[in-house]
Each structure stands twice: as structure tokens, then as C-alpha cells.
Computed example of a mutant assay.
Amino acid sequence: MLPHRDDTPADLDLGDLVMRVARDLRRSGMAAFEPYDLAPHHVRALRVVAHQGTMRLGELAQHLRVAPRSVTDVVDALESRGLARRSPDPDDRRAQVVELTDDARALVGRIDEARRAGAEAYFARLPAGERETLRRILLRLDADA
């Protein structure tokens, strides 16, 4: 059974609490791209290409953990909005690569900044020392994964 907001803290284990915080952060992060009329999967694709660089469509599908045909639809939508462009892979002309336009890179910068600001506001409820402790703990858990 999934935990609900009305569950008492004693009813929640660490996994439940981490998932609740992650959902809250995801919701506030989604607010960062609402003004741009982008779906969450479009933003994820933009962010992956922005941070990883030009890549084959198959690689993007792997990063997004979706089927290659799904990533084609996402890239089609981004391309139609002038945010991405496809071109033949210089190493294998049978394959295509996707890259972001300058407008898309600027947009990702604005979205990333808004997401960071939202996360900072979320965690500002904690004193600085507790935020730093939480950061160290999460970094350690992430490194061990």
C-alpha cells in the first residue's frame, strides 16, 4: 500500500519519506517548465541532450529509458517547435543524431535555473547545517548505488 499525506510520520519508513520528498520536488520542478507549454518528457529529452551533447536517437532513448519509436515522437515535437534538429550521424550516415538549437539551450538554462530555485526554496525550511548533512548523506548513497 502506498503512503498517503495523512499517514503519521511513525507509519513511514525512510523509503516512503524519500519518495514523498522526491514527488514534491518533481511537482515543483514541473512548475518551472509550465510557462513554456512543454510536456515533462520533452523537458527530460531537452535536458539530456543539453547536458550530454549531440547524440544518436537510440542513445537518447536509452538515457530516457523509452523505446526508440517513442523518442522519435519526442524529437519530432521538439523539432517542430524549433528546439531540436536532426542530421545524419557523421560516423554512420544510416543513423541520425539530434542536437539542440540555440533557443533550446537558452530555454534549458532558464528551466534548470527555475528548478534549482524551486529546490533551494523547498530545502530552505531546513537550517544550513542540516541541508549540508542531507547533501552529504545523499551524495554518499548516490555514489554507492
Rank of each mutant, 00 (worst) to 15 (best):
L57C: 04
H51M: 10
V43K: 12
A50R: 15
H51N: 15
G53L: 12
L46P: 07
A50C: 08
A39H: 06
Y36L: 03
G29M: 09
D24S: 13
D37H: 14
L57K: 12
R27D: 12
H41L: 14
V49D: 01
P35F: 09
E34N: 00
A45V: 15
V48S: 04
D37N: 10
R26F: 04
L57N: 06
R47D: 13
M55Q: 11
V49N: 05
A45L: 07
D37G: 01
L60D: 06
A32G: 01
P40C: 08
H41R: 15
G29H: 03
H51C: 09
D37Q: 08
D24E: 15
P40V: 06
L25C: 10
F33T: 00
R26T: 07
D37A: 13
Y36H: 13
R27K: 11
H41V: 13
H42F: 04
L25I: 06
R56D: 04
R27A: 14
Q52F: 11
G53W: 06
L57R: 14
G29S: 14
H42R: 15
P35W: 11
F33Q: 05
R47N: 08
R56E: 07
H42I: 04
R44M: 12
T54R: 13
V43G: 12
P35A: 10
V48D: 02
L46I: 08
V43Y: 03
F33R: 02
A50F: 13
A31W: 00
M55F: 03
R26N: 07
H51L: 14
A50N: 14
V43M: 11
V49P: 02
A50H: 15
A50W: 03
L46W: 07
H51R: 15
A31R: 14
F33A: 09
S28Q: 15
L46K: 14
H42C: 06
L38W: 04
R56L: 03
R47M: 14
A32K: 02
E34C: 00
A50I: 02
D37R: 11
E59G: 14
S28V: 14
A39E: 11
M30H: 06
M30L: 02
D37W: 04
L57I: 13
G58M: 03
R27C: 02
M55Y: 10
A45T: 09
G53S: 09
V48Q: 12
M55D: 12
G53F: 04
